[in-house]
Design a protein around this nucleic acid. Structure first.
Length: 504
RNA sequence: GGUUUCCUAGCUCAAUGGUAGAGCAGUUGACUCUUAAUCAAUUGGUUCAGGGUUCGAGUCCCUGGGGAACCA
């Protein structure tokens, strides 16, 4: 660099721009260059044949993440989708001029492609002896610190790409999420479920109780809401004769943002004709067991030092409680009413008056709003005192019918519905129902729930039901929450690539 | 929405109300098997923004912005 009056050697952005300008002046523009890798890093390393150094040629490409120059020879690492691979540059291999370019023009964060042969270093690391290299993108900004990585949560979320470049755990966690979604698809397709896509823009936000985002279509001059659930359109597909369908899609809820809530989140919903909530129980258990065993693949180590043995496990540590969730053990099944009776110690709880229930809720140390309905008072106990304690996989069955208008009424107890909620880690992970297919009962339930707000009833869905929907089991899984559990994450933001934040 | 708390160099962090520092990264040099490489030298600050108190504010107070935890 030429002598300048002001020393800007501290300004890494300026230094890197200077290097880029020098390269361009010398006739090379990295932004116009490219390479064709033959392998990803781990695949390349797997090609090495023990004892046969410099036999296997490879071309790999990635981001420069460590840089160790020792005079005429240097070890660096690049990182691609599969992880890091070490490269060895020597002056006597590359020649004085290219080696000089390597030493002076490259910076941490640059993206380069290299060709060479595989060999094993003294310390046993499979490495590429570089014979040729090409810079294919210049990083004009420096990487975060190499040892501590990036830890400012705000920057982690706003500049997730930096987090993913430097924080190994984040790379692994978010890749596991991607693999979970992919494995869910394969699992369902193997069982003849069809993946369909239904509208995000809807005129009525049905299938759940939540405040929707509102928007407007200009050409149609029509207001729309973003969907809060996939349910009602997937059931139309059951009417259509698609007997096994699922959708993995984004839902939007215009509500609070927290460790467990992002305004947009990913939901899986599955519907299977001629099944019911019991069938869904088997399906979801098989699915989650498969995900733990074949995707997350937890291991446990017994003993220490030389005697240590690592073997596959079905247990995953729950970040919030520190407890180990055992997916391999028997999954508990319990009725909602039994849990409430156990918690309140009152076998007659469900025949108490509203006043008695208010008193009962308060006696448990909870706030009880006199405006609440009776089922809301009871559900306060469930939500605050029971659900958070259900860490091991638990099917809570037969919820009060007021909690969901879309399920079939239990034959021998008309106050409950044929449903379960799968609770794991104190969180609702998967609700499932025997789906209501009686159009008249469905209409009555909608009307009871909507009250004055009759415009919130999806009449087009009711029309579809009148054409006949087969009996069916349906299930939903919050993919984000599932990813939290399976990756041992603490927050939904840790399993969403770009969680929602305020504009900076 | 409420309470608590955080915001200092590119990054990770220091600094009783009294001259804003360190490590990494950067720059210059040495070094042909390194693993957070090493060694020597060295640059770098509108302390989130704006007000206030004070002889003096990164530090105390107020307002605003953004993040986090808990609550609703």
């Amino acid at each position: 660099m030429s002598d300048t009056v002001t020393d800007n050697s501290h300004d890494q952005h300026a230094v890197r721009r200077g290097k880029l300008a020098d390269m361009r002046a010398g006739g090379f523009d990295p932004f116009r260059a490219n390479v064709t890798p033959t392998h990803f890093s781990a695949d390349a390393k797997a090609l090495y044949v023990e004892g046969q150094d410099d036999v296997v040629p490879v071309t790999v490409a990635g981001r420069l993440i460590t840089f160790r120059v020792q005079g005429g020879s240097s070890f660096v690492k690049i990182q691609d989708q599969q992880g890091p691979i070490q490269l060895y540059f020597r002056k006597d291999v590359l020649g004085e001029e290219r080696y000089g370019v390597f030493k002076k023009a490259l910076d941490l964060g640059d993206i380069l492609g290299v060709s060479g042969t595989l060999f094993k270093t003294k310390t046993g690391e499979i490495t590429v002896r570089v014979t040729e290299f090409t810079l294919v993108s210049k990083a004009l900004r420096p990487l975060p610190e190499k040892w501590h990585g990036l830890s400012d949560p705000e920057q982690v979320y706003r500049q997730r790409y930096l987090d993913l470049i430097v924080n190994q755990e984040s790379r692994h966690r978010l890749m596991t999420r991607a693999r979970i979604v992919s494995a869910v698809r394969r699992f369902l397709e193997d069982r003849q479920f069809l993946e369909v896509e239904t509208p995000v823009l809807q005129s009525v936000a049905g299938g759940a109780a939540a405040r929707p985002f509102q928007t407007h279509h200009n050409a149609l001059n029509t207001d729309f809401v973003l969907r809060i659930s996939l349910e009602l359109y997937l059931k139309r597909m059951l009417v259509a004769g698609y007997d096994r369908v699922f959708e993995i899609g984004r839902n939007f809820r215009n509500e609070g943002v927290s460790r467990r809530h992002n305004p947009e989140f990913t939901m899986l919903e599955v519907y299977q004709a001629y099944s019911d909530y019991r069938g869904m129980m088997t399906l979801v258990k098989d699915l989650l067991t498969h995900l733990v065993r074949d995707v997350v693949k937890p291991t446990e180590t017994e003993g220490e030092g030389e005697a240590a043995v690592t073997r596959p496990s079905m247990r995953i540590k729950h970040a919030a409680s520190g407890e180990w969730i055992d997916f391999g053990a028997e999954w508990r099944e319990v009725k909602y009413k039994d849990l409430i009776i156990e918690k309140t110690g009152d076998a007659q709880w469900f025949s108490r008056t509203k006043e008695e229930k208010i008193e009962g809720v308060q006696k448990l140390g909870l706030y009880a709003d006199p405006k609440w309905e009776e089922f809301e008072l009871t559900n306060e106990i469930f939500g605050k005192l029971i659900e958070p304690t259900l860490i091991q996989p638990t099917f809570v069955t037969h919820l009060p019918k007021e909690l969901c208008p879309l399920a079939k009424i239990t034959v021998d107890d008309p106050s409950t519905i044929d449903v379960f909620e799968l609770i794991i880690g104190g969180m609702e992970v998967a609700p499932a129902y025997s789906e209501q297919n009686d159009p008249d009962v469905q209409r009555a339930m909608f009307e009871a729930q909507a009250g004055e707000e009759t415009q919130k009833i999806d009449h087009d869905f009711l029309l579809a039901l009148e054409h006949g929907m087969p009996p069916a089991g349906g299930m939903g899984i919050g993919i984000d929450r599932l990813a939290i559990l399976l990756t041992g994450a603490e927050s939904i933001r840790d399993v969403i690539l770009f969680p929602q934040l305020r504009n900076a």
